[in-house]
């Protein structure tokens, strides 16, 4: 294949994608069988997961080698930028679905179940009168319409304890990564490394606090996934956010290593920027979580 200098880099055929598809298939096929109690489900799932990690390692390794070999011009860099930006947009829409479920439940479903037929989306109060006439509306739900199926939590999460602290932690991690970016622009490696290290540590601290909170919720508050719509939205939203923080932290660690290996300079550091965009996105999602899940 001919590459004129300055022309758009076209990669040669690659085996990573097909291995990635095999990995995804094993993960999904294994997970579904796991859910059905089939004994070879979990092993298949983990084999798939291991294969996926291997593919990600190999694929990114390949891309990094190409990047270091100087095959990527400005235009290629722009493609990656557009790609990452719109990938983050799709993630925003994914969270949007769950926030939508939260708002709908709070505004409409709970009110309707409590016999209020004036809400915007809900219409009928019949469920209330015919099935659960005793149900009272309140948020967070401390009594579910049918407590025998969905036992309610004893207590709800308090916003101004650990969650507020976590907000501070994530916000300052957004600051430290920006500070690292300044170092990148000024080509100061130690500055970058310190900034990234601080960000990673703040991310890990956040995750530890979050884990502590989950344990408290499960053991002390009896607040679980099965505690009705409050527990459902609480754990699904914060859980997916926590998953994204975990992924973001892993990506930050990779970037930290790459910065240590001198992969970046002030001109050429899109990988760093992509991860920092992702980190800011995770940050903003948390702000919404804090306001709508914990606080209001």
């Amino acid at each position: 294949m001919i590459h004129e200098k300055g022309s758009y880099y076209l990669p040669s055929p690659s085996y990573w994608p097909i291995f990635g598809s095999c990995a995804l298939f094993c993960i999904m096929f294994g997970a579904a069988h796991w859910l059905h109690g089939v004994n070879w489900g979990p092993p298949l799932f983990f084999v798939g997961l291991a294969l996926l990690f291997f593919v990600m390692y190999g694929w990114f390794h390949h891309v990094i080698q190409e990047s270091l070999a100087g095959l990527y011009n400005k235009q290629v860099d722009h493609s990656y930028r557009w790609g990452m930006a719109w990938f983050i947009f799709s993630e925003v829409m994914f969270f949007g679905a769950f926030f939508g479920a939260l708002f709908y439940s709070r505004i409409s479903a709970v009110a309707e179940l409590a016999g209020d037929s004036t809400s915007l989306f809900g219409a009928s109060a019949l469920t209330h009168y015919l099935i659960w006439p005793g149900f009272m509306p309140h948020w967070p739900l401390l009594h579910n319409p049918d407590p025998s199926l969905f036992p309610a939590p004893k207590q709800v999460m308090e916003a101004w304890g650990i969650p507020a602290l976590n907000t501070l932690i994530l916000l300052s991690s957004g600051g430290t990564i920006t500070w690292a970016h300044w170092g990148m622009i000024k080509n100061k490696r130690s500055h970058v490394l310190i900034g990234l290290l601080l960000t990673v540590l703040l991310g890990i601290t956040f995750l530890c606090f979050q884990a502590h909170e989950y344990i408290t919720a499960y053991e002390d508050y009896n607040l679980r996934l099965t505690s009705g719509i409050y527990g459902t939205t609480f754990f699904m939203l914060t859980g997916f956010h926590g998953l994204h923080v975990t992924i973001g932290t892993i990506m930050l660690i990779v970037i930290l290593f790459r910065a240590y290996l001198n992969h970046f300079n002030s001109e050429h550091h899109f990988a760093f920027e992509a991860v920092s965009w992702y980190w800011h996105f995770v940050d903003v999602v948390w702000l919404f979580l804090f306001v709508f899940v914990y606080w209001l």
Binding site: A109, G122, N144, P145, T226, G228
Partner: peptide
């Protein structure tokens, strides 16, 4: 599978 109640009115969902 995980006992949530997004679409189950008994848990406050819809």
């Amino acid at each position: 599978h995980f006992g949530t109640s997004f679409f189950n009115a008994a848990g406050g969902g819809d």
